[in-house]
Design a binder for these strands. Structure first.
Lengths: 373, 373
DNA sequence: GCGGGTTAATTCGAAATCGAACGTACCTGT
DNA sequence: ACAGGTACGTTCGATTTCGAATTAACCCGC
C-alpha cells in the first residue's frame, strides 16, 4: 500500500494475488489497530464506471510514518514531505551554487528538510524513508555518482551515505531522470502505463525508464543515458570523447550558446521559451533544433525499448509543443514504423516538481519492497 | 519447472517463494503420481560447490509432454523437439527458397516436425506446446509480422494462426533475435545472467533483450530493433527511408556487396569468414567494418539498457573475434564509461541452433506461465 | 577420521490463505 | 420504479502453506 496511495480491497487482492477473503481479514485487523483508514472521498471512477458496487479506498494512516524526498539540480535543492497515503504535506526549495562542494549542498538540504517537517508539525522520528535524486549516472553497486559535468562537487561521493549521515536516516538514491519517470508514473501523465520513458531535458539530457511495470535500471543502474547518443558524427567534441552527442547539441547550454550572438540578454531556458511564445523566431528556432535532436535520439530509444508513452520534462519540456512537435517529427522519421506508431509523446504534468516527487515515490517504493522481503 | 530443465527442491522453493516444507509435500505427491522424476546425475555444482549437502534434481517426466520449436530463416527451416525436462530429443532442418509464399514454408516445417517426432518415436498428441521464430518485428497484438525484407512471403500473415492451423496445435511466435536471447539464457553463454542482449547479425541485424530476468518485448513486442539505428547520416538510403542504417552497412548483403568487386566468387558469409581466417585481408577488413558498425549501435544500446552481457550470434557472430574485437572497440568508444565497463561481449555458444532452441524455450516458458495464471 | 561448517530435505503442529456462497451497492435500460 | 447486470466486500469451514526443529549429506582442516 505504500506504493499506491490509496487502494480498494479488491484492487489490493488483485495486486497481491491474494484472495479477497484474505484481504478482508487482514484489513479488518489493520483498521481495528488504526494503522489504516477508510477513505470516504471519491472512490476513483478509474477508467469509466461501468456498473458494480463502488470500491471503498484504504490508505495508510499518518501514524504509519512520513517520507522525505530530496532533489538536487544544477542550481536548486528541493525537498518534499509526504505521508504514506501519498498525500503531500510540505515542500521547500532553495537556489544553490552548482560549483560548491557536496557537503555544502547537503547542509542546505538538511535545513530544508527540517523546515518542511516543522511546518508540517512533524518530527524527524516519524520519517520512515528518504529518497534522493541527483543529475548524472549513479552506480547501483558503489552508490557513487559517475562523471557528471553538472554537479562537479559530487563526483566520487557516496551520495547515499553522505546524506544518510547528515540526516541520521537511511537514504535511497537514484538518478533524477529515473525519479521523474517514477513521479509521472505515480502521480502524473503516465499513470497506469507499464512501458514508458521520461525525458529530463535540461542542462543534461537523460531518460528514466519503466518497463514491465517497474523502474528499470539495467545491470549497473545507469540505464537510460541518452545524453551521449551520437546525433551528428561531425558535430562539436563532447567531454565524453565523441563528437555531436545529444547533450552537446540540445542541452540548455547549447541552446543559450546558439542564441548568444543575437540575444545576448537571454541567460536561461525559461526566457527562451517566453520569447518564443511572444513570437521571437530565433528563440523558436533554437527550441525546434533542440527538439529535433532529442527526437532523433528518441527514435533509437523507441526502436530499442518500444515504449507506450514518452513524457518530456525538464526545463526544456516546459516549452510544450514548441519542442514536442519537432521531436515528434524526428521521432517518426527515425523510428521503425511500428515503434513510432506505438508511442505517444507528451509533456510532463508535474513540471519542475517531477524529480522531488519522484524522490518521495522512491522512498515509498522502497518501503513496499521492505515488506515483501 | 517447465522453464528450468531440472531443479532441486531447494531451488524450487527459492524461485517460487514457497517454503521448503511446502515444496517437499508437493513434490512428494507429484513423484508418487509419476509426473516428475528424481535425477541421480550431476547434482550441478553450480557456481562452485562450497560445502553443504548436494541437491537432488527433479525434472518433469517425459509423460508430461513434449514441446516443438520451429525457426524460419532467410534460407532455412529448422525444427527441434524436446521434453519438458529440457532434454533435446530430435532436430531437423532444410534449405528453402526465401521468395516462396509462407504457406509453402509452413508445409516444409510441418513435414520436418512430423519427421522429427517420428524419429523420437513420439506422437503429435504428446506435444503440449509449439514455439516459432521469424526474422522481423512481430506485433504482439495482431500476431502479424511487420515489414520485413527478409521473408517477403510472410508480410501481413498472422503467423501464429497459420502455423497453428497447419499443425493442429497452439503456437507461440516471436522474433528470432528474442528467441536467440532466450536460448542463450537457458542453455548458452548467458545462463544466470539477468540483464542481457543477444545480437543476431545476419541478413538483418536485431537484438533480443532480457531485462530484470525476463524476456523484454516492450509495449508492442518489437523492442530490440537495432537494425535501423542510424550509423552514418550520409550513408546509403535504406528501405526504411533513412540513410546509413546499421542493416545497410553491416548486414550480410552489405558485406558481400563490398567484396563483390575483388572477390566475385564469394556468395555467403561463411566463405568470408573462412577466407579471413586463411589470411585474406580484404575479407578480414569487411568483417572488421561490419563489427565496428554494429559496435557503434551497441554503444547506444548499452547506454540505454545497460546490460551485463551481450551475446553475438547469427552467421556473422560465427566469425568470433574477427568481428568481436572491432565491435568491442567501437562499443567502448561510443558508450558512456560506466555502461562500457559493465558489459561483457561474447560469442554465441549455440551458433546456428540458437534460434530453434529459443523457439523450444519459448514453448516451455509459455507452459510455465499457463500454470501461474 | 572426527568435529565444525554448510546446504538440502523432511516432519509436524500452528497459522495463514483459500473458495464458494452470500449480501451489498451502484449503474443501465425499459 | 424496477429488473438485470456488475463489481465490491464479507462470512465460513476446508485446505494449503508456513516455521522451527530435525535429520541428512557433503566439504574442509587438522
Amino acid at each position: 500500500m505504500s506504493e499506491f496511495g490509496a487502494l480498494s480491497r479488491a484492487e489490493l487482492a488483485r495486486r497481491t494475488a491474494l484472495a479477497p477473503s484474505t484481504i478482508s481479514t487482514l484489513t479488518a485487523d489493520l483498521l481495528r489497530d488504526g494503522l489504516i483508514v477508510e477513505r470516504s472521498e471519491t472512490p476513483v471512477p478509474a477508467a469509466g464506471p461501468r456498473g458494480g458496487r463502488p470500491a471503498t479506498l484504504l490508505a495508510l494512516h499518518r501514524s504509519a510514518g512520513l517520507v522525505v524526498g530530496i532533489d538536487f539540480g544544477k542550481t536548486h535543492v528541493r525537498v518534499a514531505v509526504a505521508d504514506r497515503a501519498h498525500e503531500l504535506i510540505a515542500e521547500r526549495s532553495k537556489q544553490v551554487d552548482p560549483d560548491q562542494r557536496s557537503a555544502t549542498h547537503i547542509k542546505v538540504a538538511v535545513r530544508l528538510v527540517h523546515a518542511a517537517l516543522e511546518s508540517a508539525r512533524a518530527n524527524r522520528d516519524q520519517v520512515v524513508g528518504v529518497g534522493m535524486g541527483l543529475p548524472g549516472p549513479i552506480n547501483r553497486a558503489t552508490g557513487q555518482i559517475g562523471d557528471s559535468a553538472i554537479l562537479p562537487g559530487w563526483v566520487g561521493v557516496n551520495a547515499s551515505k553522505a546524506m544518510s549521515d547528515a540526516l541520521g536516516l537511511p537514504v535511497s538514491v537514484d538518478n533524477d531522470a529515473n525519479l521523474g519517470a517514477l513521479a509521472e508514473w505515480v502521480w502524473g501523465a503516465a499513470r497506469g502505463c507499464n512501458e514508458l520513458a521520461y525525458i529530463k531535458a535540461a542542462t543534461g539530457i537523460g531518460a528514466g525508464l519503466i518497463t514491465n511495470g517497474r523502474p528499470f535500471g539495467g545491470y549497473g543502474g545507469t540505464a537510460g543515458e541518452i545524453g551521449h547518443t551520437i546525433i551528428d558524427p561531425s558535430g562539436p567534441i563532447c567531454r565524453c570523447g565523441n563528437r555531436g552527442c545529444l547533450e552537446m547539441l540540445a542541452g540548455t547550454p547549447a541552446l543559450l550558446a546558439a542564441l548568444q550572438p543575437t540575444h545576448p540578454d537571454i541567460t536561461n531556458a525559461a526566457d527562451v521559451i517566453a520569447r518564443a511564445r511572444d513570437g521571437d523566431s530565433g528563440c523558436a528556432r533554437a527550441l525546434t533544433d533542440s527538439g529535433r535532436a532529442i527526437g532523433t535520439a528518441l527514435a533509437t530509444l523507441c526502436n530499442i525499448t518500444n515504449p507506450e508513452r514518452i513524457i518530456v520534462g525538464g526545463e526544456l519540456g516546459a516549452a510544450g509543443d514548441l519542442v514536442l512537435d519537432p521531436m515528434r517529427d524526428a521521432l517518426h522519421r527515425g523510428a521503425i514504423r511500428s515503434a513510432g506508431q506505438d508511442v505517444t509523446l507528451c509533456q510532463s504534468t508535474l513540471g519542475e516538481r517531477a524529480e522531488v516527487l519522484g524522490a518521495v515515490a522512491l522512498a515509498l517504493t522502497r518501503l513496499g519492497h521492505a515488506l515483501e522481503r
